[in-house]
Design a protein around this nucleic acid. Sequence first.
DNA 1: ATAAAATAGCACCAAAATAGTGCCATACAA
DNA 2: TTGTATGGCACTATTTTGGTGCTATTTTAT
Lengths: 130, 130
Amino acid sequence: MALAFLASRPGAFCSVREIVDDLKLPKRLLAEVLKDMSRATLVDATRGPGGGYRLAMDAKTLPLSRVVEVLEGPVSIADCGDGCSLQPSCLIQTGLTQVTASIRKVLDNMTVAELLEQTDTPAAKAILSV
Amino acid sequence: MALAFLASRPGAFCSVREIVDDLKLPKRLLAEVLKDMSRATLVDATRGPGGGYRLAMDAKTLPLSRVVEVLEGPVSIADCGDGCSLQPSCLIQTGLTQVTASIRKVLDNMTVAELLEQTDTPAAKAILSV
DNA sequence: ATAAAATAGCACCAAAATAGTGCCATACAA
DNA sequence: TTGTATGGCACTATTTTGGTGCTATTTTAT
Ligand code: SF4
Ligand code: SF4
């Protein structure tokens, strides 16, 4: 939601306060998330009065898969890696890997810009008309 | 994994013991899961010696979406329903709904039979050759 | 009959993941 | 110099998930 908000104000630095005033999110929590995204260079940050965050790239080139990876790590539905003890007897590993790939493709193919544009609630329309 | 196992023994009743001997799963836990699936008529059950579980339908007609729904409820990545307090200011609801639909489509389009057939590990090949 | 093999039900505990805070440091602008 | 803002990181609280305890019921074989 915060990224969608930033996408609606391209180029402008928006403070956490501004964002949560609009979106009604817990302020401290969103602050932590934005810090994470800043560290991952998904957003730019500037401090001090007038500062805040802005998207580090065009929202049209920011797929949801990237966001998920930054916030939750690699897209996956089963951690076959790091030594799953069931692997030797597992009957579905490759199949699940394919399902995961399909899901990642879904997330690759939707951008933050689309996420916002596709949403037709009053709040989303209002912010787009500004 | 258990459903894939049952898919490899079509028509035959397999006990929890048999399944966990092969798949190395915690017995009691798998038992609970199979009970759930039995209640949801995903599998048939018979009691007593020689009893166990078998698929209630052809594995080729059992999509993963059905399995997920039975075990974890409706496929979703955000519970917009039952009164999300953020809904009035949410900028991404419709977009996320579309992502969810795409993911469900992925799960609709892979069956338990495919899940097993696609898997090319030694264990999976072995069970298929029997 | 009786014993043994299996599922049925359901509450309960334990571990892990997620949501959310506290606290202080640092940077920037007026 | 003061107020506004992000940076870092440990910490608590809540929820979800993984797993167990216990008992009842059904079925087959002796
Ligand atoms: S899919 Fe098979 S191998 Fe991968 S995590 Fe699940 S059990 Fe382990
Ligand atoms: S998407 Fe928007 S409406 Fe749906 S749950 Fe998340 S915040 Fe609430």
